[in-house]
Design a protein around this nucleic acid. Sequence first.
RNA 1: GCGGAUAUGGUGUAAUUGGUAGCCACGUCAGACUUAGGAUCUGAUGCCGAGAGGCGUGGGGGUUCGAGUCCCUUUAUCCGCACCA
Length: 915
Amino acid sequence: MDYNFREIEAKWQKEWRERDIYRVEVDPSRPKFYVLDMFPYPSGAGLHVGHPLGYIASDIYSRYKRLCGYNVLHPMGYDAFGLPAEQYAIQTGQHPAVTTEKNIARYREQLDKIGFCYDWNREVRTCDPEYYKWTQWAFLKMFAHYYDRKEQKAMPIESLVSHFEAHGTDGVDAACSSEMTFTAEQWAAMNEEQKEQTLQNYRLAFRADTMVNWCPKLGTVLANDEVKDGLSVRGGYPVEQRKMKQWSLRVTAYAQRMLDGLESLEWSESLKEIQRNWIGRSEGAQVFFDAQMADGTLRKLEIFTTRPDTIFGVTFMVVAPEHEWLDDMTTPEQKAAVEEYIAQTKKRSERERISDTKRVSGVFTGAYAVNPFTGKQIPIYASDYVLAGYGTGAIMAVPAHDSRDYAFARHFGLEIIPVVEGGDLSVASYDAKEGAMINSDFLNGTDVKEAIYKMFEEVERRGLGKRLVNYRLRDAIFSRQRYWGEPFPIRYEGNIARPADMSELPITLPAIENFGPTEQGEPPLARVEGWEFELSTMPGFAGSSAYFLRYMDPHNSEALVSKDANEYWRNVDLYIGGIEHATGHLMYSRFWNMFLYDLGYVCESEPFKKLVNQGMIQGRSNFVYRVVGTNKFVSYNLREQYQTQKIHVDVNIVKNDVLDLEAFRNWMPEFQSAEFILEDGQYICGWEIEKMSKSMFNVVNPDYIVEQYGADTLRMYEMFLGPLEQAKPWDTNGIDGVHKFLRRFWRLFHDRNGEWAVTDEKATEKELKSLHKTIKKIREDIENFSFNTSVAAFMICVNELGECHKREIIEPLAVLLAPFAPHITEQLWSMLGHEDTIFNAAYPVCNEQYLVESSFEYPVMINGKLRHKQVYPLNATPAELQADIVTKPEVQRWLEGATPKKIIVVPGKIINIVK
RNA sequence: GCGGAUAUGGUGUAAUUGGUAGCCACGUCAGACUUAGGAUCUGAUGCCGAGAGGCGUGGGGGUUCGAGUCCCUUUAUCCGCACCA
């Protein structure tokens, strides 16, 4: 019998499904292991060969852990809410639920062909009301909690209310949108709406006027991680800043814990760094400057600085154009200029603002503040180089030691006073944090680092402000003016948001037919008659923020996850997915999980212990060269002789860069009559690495590979392509090598005529050595996620074994290969007479005894160059080798009678003689 | 601008972590079997050189008996953040 992969794979996939062998249950008698893939968004395009890369890796690891005796949770589901389905719906009128359902079916079909060991009984879909019930539930919990900084955890909002009733804000240290102070009496005097407004300042899910990223084209608000370079990540449409009343999540409350938590995680350093940058912690001081308003009153203008040491060098101040007090401080003479400037900045899109950061712009407000240390009057400017969203939206400007302030001062002719020695202020500011202080009174002579510290104390002593930590991280905007998302379980009474009762959940998304915004610009839900809830829906990241918890107990209607299930599965031991979620999903789900941890619903504060980012698979495009003005195509190496035009050609009609001429003629009508100029009777195509995309005809469908070579070949080849974490182009050339390996593996069990040939003959020492070396190598490789080298190790082993049909050798080898190529190994396993599935077999353990060598062929280096090889027993001492090696005639020839200066022996490795 | 990563044959890559660079494949070449080959098998294949030998891990320098690996420097490519005070 030949290796008929089509038959084998169909047979075992059916068998596994019918026997439900991948179903897992809580089993306290066995250790658990949780392997998770980032669940896909089921797009209309289906999977290409790049998508399953991470799934294959996690599948191999899951199967490996299973064989090692772990109870492995390896689930899969769909991130089914989202913009593309809705955009598609607007274009075609098809309901997103319908297209999503269709896409999911297609995804499932494609996934099944690759032979994954998912427990599909645990499938979740974020658009399923039974699922999003728990998304809404968590939202209500966040609404009902605030973050207590003293306790360092989320606490019920009721306890804050009772505190307000007894003491007002006195003694409150809580995460909030803006600092508030009021007494118990003032609290008691507030009406219900005012009280609720006040509480929104503290709730972890809150509604407030916020500067948001508004995307007019998509008709919705976007979170910071959904915007890149001033354009929406989905669609690439321009985004502008707007103030809108929006639901937000107070993720900033967890900034420090999310930062600290990174330390304990086994994530790549680069990913941790991305999150650290995104959180953007900076230590500095809050300082108040006396500023005179236009009406003559004095106000304390608050700024944040990381360089309090330079306060003596502050010669002006700048506020953001959106600063709250800008209007109050602008003098009548400057009013027109300031208003014009504000209008101007508003007109500039976010993208323009980002793209010309070099251009200096700004306007004098007419107001002055007082430098608290020099006592000098300093002008206050407004400029868009100060961001409303960071710090307090106002800065103290030190032109001598900040390049932006320097450019601004130069442009407006403002005073530049050096306070740190070093640099040349006639050309640039001196920004480095080193040097001695000058022009700074009591700080003169001290080093910058010490001066910063001294200034913190001085600022606090004089009551000018205090030390403060600032974060770049922003609260997450949580509403989207769209249809295809989770409805908010919130009603309104006038302006007061009223949470739905938990018993009302899920608040199901009503069916509608028109998915665009209403004529009044309201979200689509406004079209629903009798809809009493919030009109916005939740963003894409809502549904993916706790799905890993739901997999633990997916059918529980009483809780997101039962205590038992959570305490058994705990958190994800291995998470595989793309780096693109670094600042989105991976931040939000950590926040979400920490919140649930605070409330005692989950037992681990970090959701993903180890995380591996698989690299993106790029496309490898092929090209043909058309002679300009003709329908003649010239082969790659002859193209220089003609004037040609490079045209993308479908990679599926090219094999090893050789074009299938017939297929090409049939590919498109315009090529029907194509003629070819061949080299050696073939048409050779050119190639380039590009993104895998339909328009470049370089998309390779895994179905096609499975059809041609089988799932086992696809799985192994994807791993063989290169290191998992590295980006790499897909290249179908080369897949033959892996396919050939599987056929040779098959032939270990069959003779040349295809007859079953397994024998019970005793294995030789050499064969045992080869087997156990391979077991050791592959187990280490799997643990290190070095799947490409494991595939190579299998190939070496098969090469070494030749035509060995001994059961003693090849049966353990089949178990070893099972995680990589589950179908072929399952087939062979059953042919070996085993009733049970191979995945219940015990994993082969290498026997060290067979790995021990008794002697070693030492490379003998003379002055670092290989000159001779000499076999010595491994237990010989270095001294013995040193004495003996110089007596060898080959060595003496190289020594030319000289006495060696030094002989270095590294046992089992090398002998090096220094002449 | 700041931060991170990468650089090895014609191609994808490997290197016991400082010890014979190029394992394993693809491709190419030669051979065997075949009516045939996009099947199978065998062998060769870093570069220069007839050979002895020499040269070789982006470039330059250093440490070392010995460097792809460690240090300094430089270039290129990719990624993240970016007027963050």
